[in-house]
């Protein structure tokens, strides 16, 4: 391995360590989250409501594409009714949490990095520390809690919209009635699919917010540095989401 690649590898591991450490610190500080309830609530509304319109479009088209792809294949065997099984299962277990996480990484994670990064480069974080206010308690913990709880809620919404999108394609293109589709859905979807998906979403929310906060806290070098932190947040979130998605799926279904 070349020296430069080794250097990059070390930096990536160090950054992951810092991010997970930050998440752990925020989790410990959440014992005193009651005092920050107003901030947590306002963070939740900001990241929740901002994402709703995009989540609807993404959810609907994800469900529709899944139905179309599965439908085309299944139709050759005359089994197109099975999309009522395939689409909801893929949505709830996999696409719902992951798509929601992608949306939130781009929308909320990057905003957190920009906000906190701007504070870091204009010495506001130093100012908090000098006033003996812990920035992890003051800035990171409310954001991590807010996004950890908003992500499952938004995921549930994306799941529902996606399932309906699948039903719509089934009805329009595959000659499947809504009733048939829904019967298949309700027959096969079990509770474990739903809660495993929501647990994934919870963890993605925690990851996205801690990546955004970590990148923001460590931003240096003025406006340009803030831009870099924002961009890195999105890339790192995408990578973490997919890696953790694999690990969690493996844990749940083995």
């Amino acid at each position: 391995m070349s020296a430069r690649r080794q250097e990059g590898m070390r930096a990536a591991i160090e950054s992951a360590g810092y991010t997970l450490g930050l998440l752990a610190r925020a989790a410990l500080l959440s014992r005193s989250s009651w005092k920050k309830r107003a901030e947590i609530l306002s963070q939740s509304t900001v990241c929740g409501f901002g994402a709703f319109p995009v989540a609807m479009v993404v959810g609907a088209f994800t469900g529709m594409v899944l139905a179309l792809q599965a439908g085309i294949t299944l139709k050759t065997w005359g089994q197109e009714a099975l999309i009522g099984v395939v689409v909801p299962a893929s949505m709830v277990r996999e696409m719902g949490p992951v798509m929601t996480a992608f949306i939130l990484a781009g929308l909320v994670g990057s905003t957190m990095a920009a906000e906190i990064g701007t504070m870091a480069v204009s010495e506001e974080i130093d100012a908090l520390e000098v006033m003996s206010i812990n920035p992890v308690y003051y800035l990171v913990m409310p954001r991590v809690l807010a996004l950890s709880f908003v992500t499952p809620v938004l995921t549930l919404y994306v799941d529902v919209v996606g399932i309906l999108g699948g039903a719509f394609v089934g009805d329009r293109l595959l000659g499947l009635t809504y009733a048939e589709y829904m019967r298949n859905t309700l027959d096969t979807l079990d509770l474990k699919d739903i809660y495993s998906g929501l647990f994934k979403a919870f963890l993605f929310g925690a990851l996205i917010s801690s990546v955004g906060c970590a990148q923001g806290l460590r931003a240096t070098g003025g406006a340009e540095g803030v831009g870099r932190a924002t961009m890195r947040t999105v890339v790192i979130c995408f990578v973490y989401i997919l890696i953790f998605d694999y690990i969690l799926t493996w844990l749940f279904y083995h």
């Binding site: 010495e123 100012a127 520390e129």
Partner: peptide, 17 residues
């Protein structure tokens, strides 16, 4: 504990925007 006994004016002011 030390910082509770110290006041610090930043060169930039460093107000929370």
């Amino acid at each position: 504990a030390l910082r509770r006994r110290v006041g610090y004016l930043f060169q930039s002011g460093a107000l929370l925007a």
